[in-house]
Amino acid sequence: MGLTNFTYSHTIGLASFEGRGFMNPVDVRVNSKGVLYVLSRSNAQNKDVRVSVATLDSDYKFEFGRWGTDPGKLTMPTALVIDRQDRVYVADEHMHNVSVFAEDGKFISRWGEPGTGPGKLNRPAGLAFDSHGDLLVVDHLNARVQKFTPEGAFISSFGEFGSAAGQFNYPWGIALDNAGDIWIADWRNDRVQKFRPDGEFVAAFGRTGSKPGEFRRPSGLAIDDGGDIYVADWQNDRVQVFTPQMKPREVLNGDATLSKWCEEFLAVNPEQRDQRIASGIPGHEERFFWRPSAICTTSDGLVMVADSCRHRIQIYRRVRVPVTAP
């Protein structure tokens, strides 16, 4: 089925244990200069975690935040977000902290420690900045969202474990809309919830299933400038797009073509190219999402999807600007 509101643009990525490429990317962001930051999760045992930096036209720059527990290292990273000064914040659910890096990857600081009290963290997941520059952290095993200053001083929190309105069950992704309202991917409750900036519950949508408007473990969220809501429908291997009124608008299943890096890899590995052709895979399964974890939208209409199990970022362009919600 063709796309209605989007066109497929291109794909960036290649599975790699280090250097150019990604390994199970779980988050993607673009800084103010249009530079792409991709967070590779890998399996921590395989020690291929890192933040990779590249341009949107696949010019690989550098990487930082490799495996480890020392300052500047990452073990089980979950999310990445960039502030107005282009500093990069990375949540780590093994170390229960947030590390802060300069845009060139230089380590600045880290904060956070394990626990259940105010300001303590138990497996931080999604990250998002609000309009005041404070950082919202999805504190997923504590089933709450906590707000911190960029330096890590605790401000407030909301949420508790459960399935009732306003409660969470292993929440993951977070996004804020233009009004400052907070949207949470309530992962094991298979729904998305909306809250006021002070944490007051507003609405929820979605239920368990695979039909439009249903989810199986929604992970990442994004809100575009028009208020459309993008949900990485993780176990359904798709991205669902909703209107600001939470009505299904479109489903993206993945349209990947070979990335520039993949093309270059196959050019110098002809036996791999031949094996790929012999398998009969090209042009079919190869294009679909496999556990899309996170989504990033830009003001110029790009939609980037971290396609975790295919080690790439699929990029779409929005072609029909939706009507903004009142």
């Binding site: 599975a15 199970n24 890998s42 045992q45 395989n46 659910e93 292993y170 176990q235």
Partner: peptide, 21 residues
Amino acid sequence: DLVDRYFIATVEARSPGHAVP
């Protein structure tokens, strides 16, 4: 689901080492 979330590389286990967790 939690195993898949925490050990995402086992979902697309390319090698026995990636699969065994």
